[in-house]
Design a protein around this nucleic acid. Structure first.
Length: 303
RNA sequence: GCCUCUGUAGCUCAGUUGGUAGAGCAGAGGACUGAAAAUCCUCGUGUCAUUGGUUCGAUUCCGAUCGGAGGCA
């Protein structure tokens, strides 16, 4: 019990100030930051993913940021593996690991210590299944794993397909995986702080302003890059902040329209993040609430 | 000044052959185990511009008034 690594996690929706807060806490705790963000891991995409600049990092080492070519796919399983190693490595040097990011799935899987079923990267099954309709896929899943199928809506194609794929490739059903993947004991002595604003309006206001700043910082150049490579940037092209400008480049919509669309998409995304973190707040391991000041989190963490 | 079209949910618009109305988007809530910034689910009462008339009954038909758009002078 005592030899568990102490882990600080700074979670929260986009534009809640995770970056500056984690740098501040890293300074006080002699720590290093590990990214828990599904898009900031990619190289070449800085402005749109709000990756911290070297100025913002203030000399604090940041890991798992911009290390992957945008052409590469990535997955939670890989994330948990890489982040775990990173935590151990930082901790072995006597530094405090700090996880910072907004991808709920990554954070939860890491802190719960989810053990994913061994599976090779093989897209052939997925490709083979892609010809089937939602109904056909759902029928298939009902036969393989009715229990899990009942928790999904037939329209949720990606999830249905993944569950089928999991079984075909590994012989394990999703129900089995869910039952066996979470260890009874959490791997880290973790402390999760979730950042938020007093009101929804304040959050949305900040998001809108940040989009305007991104545009001044050259967001359109990155968007153009993503547009030109949208075939190969499989995962990265899904990032919010690029695809919204495609209609502008294709002379279908004005820059203003696209900018509004981007602000809206970001607000919608923030809402989804809030839902995720709200659920985490209700779980046992959640400890701090709505703290925008480093003081509160710092004092609570070092207890 | 005249003519035509138009005024319905925060926005864009359907619709009611007269029995008080519904989509998309926005917004709110939720789910989430190898694409997760992805994907998916649930939630729709609003003086149907105002005001008279016809009618058992008008948002729907007729008139007037006030907005808006276009056309002709």
């Amino acid at each position: 019990m005592a030899d568990k690594v102490k882990l600080l996690v700074i979670a929260g929706a986009t534009a809640t100030g995770k970056t500056s807060l984690s740098v501040e806490l890293a300074k006080r705790l002699d720590g290093e930051v590990i990214c828990a963000d599904s898009m900031q891991i990619y190289d070449k995409l800085l402005v749109g993913t709000a990756r911290p600049t070297s100025g913002e990092m203030q000399g604090i080492p940041h890991h798992l940021m911009g290390f992957l070519a945008p052409e590469k796919r990535f997955s939670v399983a890989e994330y948990v593996e890489l982040a775990s190693k990173c935590i151990d490595e930082i901790s072995s040097r006597g530094k405090q690991p700090i996880i910072t990011g907004g991808t709920g799935l990554y954070i939860q899987s890491l802190t719960d210590g989810v053990k994913f079923t061994q599976q090779d990267t093989d897209l052939s099954v997925r490709e083979a299944l892609s010809a089937e309709t939602n109904e056909q896929l759902y029928e298939r899943l009902l036969k393989l794993d009715a229990e899990y199928a009942k928790t999904l809506h037939p329209n949720n194609r990606k999830r249905v397909m993944r569950a089928v794929e999991l079984y075909i490739q590994t012989g394990t059903t999703m129900t089995q995986q869910l039952a066996n993947s979470v260890p009874t004991e959490r791997p880290y002595d973790d402390y999760i702080a979730v950042l938020d604003y007093e009101t929804r309006d304040a959050l949305y206001d900040n998001i809108n302003k940040r989009v305007d700043v991104m545009l001044k910082n050259g967001l359109l150049n990155e968007a153009k890059l993503v547009l030109e490579n949208r075939e190969s940037y499989v995962t990265a092209a899904q990032a919010i902040g690029y695809k919204e400008f495609f209609p502008y480049f294709e002379n279908e919509q004005s820059l203003e329209q696209c900018t509004e669309k981007l602000k809206q998409a970001t607000r919608n995304y923030a809402k989804r993040q809030l839902t995720w973190f709200n659920r985490m707040k209700n779980a046992m391991h959640y400890k701090a609430a709505c703290a925008q000041t480093s003081e509160l989190i710092y004092n609570d963490f070092i207890k």
